[in-house]
Design a protein around this nucleic acid. Structure first.
Lengths: 236, 236
DNA sequence: CGCCTGGTTGACCAGAGTCAAACCTCGTGG
DNA sequence: CCACGAGGTTTGACTCTGGTCAACCAGGCG
């Protein structure tokens, strides 16, 4: 279904199965009578400070969570993929704003319903573990990586099964290129990576100049050598 | 028991109850036959890459989790307090190193034991939610705050019931000072805040010069006006 | 007493931020 | 069909925060 664009483009997406956290472990949250909502691109699902009652499972599309400082500085704290859970809060209010990056479908669930099912509880725990790990990874990026390393890491994050633990290098002899479609604007990328829009733009231009990527359109990027890009993420 | 020093010093600690996540919701993890381990200061509980089988609940003391980049850059991704859970991993290996900052006691628990108890499952979920929220907060700090703001936020984090949501300002008319004991070295603080040791040191000196804090010993800091400090955390 | 570790300070430098202008791309309307 | 405008993006010139490197200091311990 073309209307649900995914960060990485195109045909059957090999990452899909991977990125959906524990696809079928103990049933789906949707099974327990969750309401499903559809959103357009750049719709707000909830605002920081809104009363938090339910939690959400992203069924399709991409959603970002961000927080604002009073002077307007913004930090995107998570970029979510299908299968991810969000909207939990220990207090009565959401601590961040949730906004879609693409058209998206979201299951709205009552936490108590989950707590009644051991299987779903288990699934929830696994989801949270995975997301927590991503947050740790992101803390390293924000705290210790240079601008180029941040952008390179970001691009690698959009390539299925490469970088990180599951990276097996380029397929033997294959040309190791990759086409990807960005669903985030430069500003959103900047706010995710803790940079300014100008720096993000400059790094893209620099990577282009160095022959590592090709920019077909602002949101259409071709990675010439995935491995070469991975080399500059700081994790090698 | 004096041997268990807590980040904030002294007598009966008003924060204690607050910081222990969901103190008695649905029983304690310790109840289900968890082994308890004692550690000295700066002991490693597990290393990044170690096989991950169990999960841990911090019973007393302080523990930090950090990740290393191959070139030696380090990022402390979490500073844990009693009640916090750590050591979960989606994969078979720990994704970060856990090291004590003080003497500490830790319950080692089998995840499957928890999964058998709905009450503990629920408690676990709450813990993870709280920690996740802290990680979001920290992402804002790392991605968007200046050096002074980071250090100020860090110090405020050590003051019970101040800053953040639960802040009710200074008690009416009270002098609003606070004494705190640092359990982290300058290097550890720097690695937590995404700064260098020199910058941390300089900011401390600067806050001293501005009369906001008094440094009695490297690890013994007096906040002259908590509210004044809170003012420069960036969240006001 | 002197070493060793951790912390502080200074001089200098570089990476990223700021401010401002120019540039695409795409949709709208004349 | 093309001119126009808006939004997002790129580029340049300059600034400044925080990093680097190196020397120095203070307290604790053998």
């Amino acid at each position: 279904m073309a209307y649900l664009s995914y960060p990485a483009t195109g045909e059957a997406d090999p990452m899909r199965a991977e990125s959906v956290t524990q696809p079928a472990a103990g049933g789906s949250f949707a099974d327990i009578g969750a309401k499903t909502h559809s959103f357009g691109s750049h719709d707000v699902i909830f605002y920081e400070g809104d009363p938090a009652k339910r939690l959400y499972e992203l069924a399709a599309g991409t959603v970002m969570l961000f927080k604002l400082l009073p002077d307007g500085r913004r930090q995107v704290v998570e970029v979510l993929r299908p299968g991810d859970i969000f909207g939990l809060a220990k207090s009565e209010e959401h601590e961040s704003t949730a906004e879609t990056l693409t058209e998206a479908q979201v299951h709205e669930i009552d936490l108590r319903r989950i707590e009644q099912s051991p299987g779903l509880q288990r699934k929830l725990t696994r989801c949270l573990m995975t997301q927590m790990q991503a947050l740790h990874e992101h803390a390293v990026l924000l705290g210790r990586k240079s601008a180029v390393e941040r952008v390179a890491s970001f691009l690698m994050y959009l390539v299925p099964n490469r970088g990180g633990v599951g990276c097996f290098g380029p397929k033997d002899g294959a040309e190791d290129g990759f086409d990807l479609h960005l669903t985030m604007t430069r500003q959103e990328i900047a706010d995710y990576l803790g940079l300014t829009i100008e720096t993000v733009s400059r790094v893209f231009s620099d990577l282009k100049r160095r022959g590592i990527i090709r920019i077909d359109r602002a949101d259409q990027i071709h990675l010439n050598k995935v491995c070469g890009l991975c080399q500059i993420t700081g994790i090698h």
